[in-house]
Design a binder for these strands. Sequence first.
DNA 1: CTTGTTTGCCAACACATGTTGACATCCTCC
DNA 2: GGAGGATGTCAACATGTGTTGGCAAACAAG
Lengths: 221, 221
Amino acid sequence: MCWQTSVGERLVTYTRWPTLVGMNGSDSAPRVPGSGAPRRSDATRGAILAAARERFATDGYERATIRAIAKDANIDPSMVMRYYRNKEGLFAAAVAIDLRLPDVSGADRRQDAGRILVEHFLDMWENNEVLTALLRVGVTNQAGAERMQGILRDQLLPVARQVCPDPEQVPARAALMASQLLGLALTRYVLRVPPATGLERAEIVAWLAPTIQRYLTAPSP
Amino acid sequence: MCWQTSVGERLVTYTRWPTLVGMNGSDSAPRVPGSGAPRRSDATRGAILAAARERFATDGYERATIRAIAKDANIDPSMVMRYYRNKEGLFAAAVAIDLRLPDVSGADRRQDAGRILVEHFLDMWENNEVLTALLRVGVTNQAGAERMQGILRDQLLPVARQVCPDPEQVPARAALMASQLLGLALTRYVLRVPPATGLERAEIVAWLAPTIQRYLTAPSP
DNA sequence: CTTGTTTGCCAACACATGTTGACATCCTCC
DNA sequence: GGAGGATGTCAACATGTGTTGGCAAACAAG
């Protein structure tokens, strides 16, 4: 797709946002072969995404201004627009989440699903600021909320399906599990309520694992 | 306290925000005697607070603009400033929360604390948009987060103290309870995740009551 | 080197925000 | 009726926002 702009007398034809075509949510991590040649601006793009993630995580959507993100990345705000079209595009590119949920369908792992999932969630939240960003944004931004719903639907629900006896109850049980896990993340990583931040990792696992296990596998009360 | 402003040649002395002195977080509900005479502007104040609560609840702190709130209340934006000084003051006045947590210290009620508290929380959240407002704001606003921490500390912690055996474990157990209850509110009333909104009230009580009961009274795992 | 494209910076626009001050009007009390 | 404070409206200010277009330098290909 091309744009034409008249500049003075001349008529300049150029691809306006040439790199938007190959835009993917990936970091500066090595891209899969075939997804486009490496670009000279990849470092800048990566810096923008990293800064965006951090700002979205700490400030939420509205207060994470493009100017502040650009400043963190040591570039001009207009670069953000060139590479990600607008703020929404930047957010979409910045928060691409794969929970990498473990498989718990094996008979032996099924009875340990609660513990496995809680431990996995703690690992995820403590090493991935994108999750905090998404939660912060999801609370105040419609697009963020929808993305969050999508993640629960596409990633959490299948896990519940693996261990839940009655297929009809899968959505309800996944929702219960989400409520407890997100509630912990909310109090511990977002609101930073003192007693929640003070909990030891082992404590959390010991308390929450039976809850998740029960939500997933216990007969409905 | 008085302010003086020179207007042209004259020198006008007047109380600038006379009504801020008697400002309290209360609604248009009848004030306690002695806290000041009823003011002619009480209706306006109430309309402002009501509109502010609704906007804060649906939009969060940043996107709930004073202009929008004023429009909802059918008054001029400057009135908001006169009565509540600034946006922070308005927020502080708008979200004054008393969870009215029931007493669960009786021996008979202690073993039912989980169910009682879950039911009470559902009542609260479904009839009080202030809670949604506070949660939304607490996630993106430092002042909101601190207020939320204060509520948990001053209102939720004492309840845990009533039923928890070991005083030393009270903060941890209160934090666990908060994580589950706030997590439910988050998924159901803020993010509005479909499976969470679809849960029946009785279902929620049946699933969550044992969790809360365990967090409060079970021996530590 | 020359030509066209990519990358980056600069200045600006249009708009929305919180906030302020001046002025008119209403009500109350003397 | 008149004085003074309370209430409300209007217009504006300063600032910050997302966003755009133009232009210069770095680069790649012929």
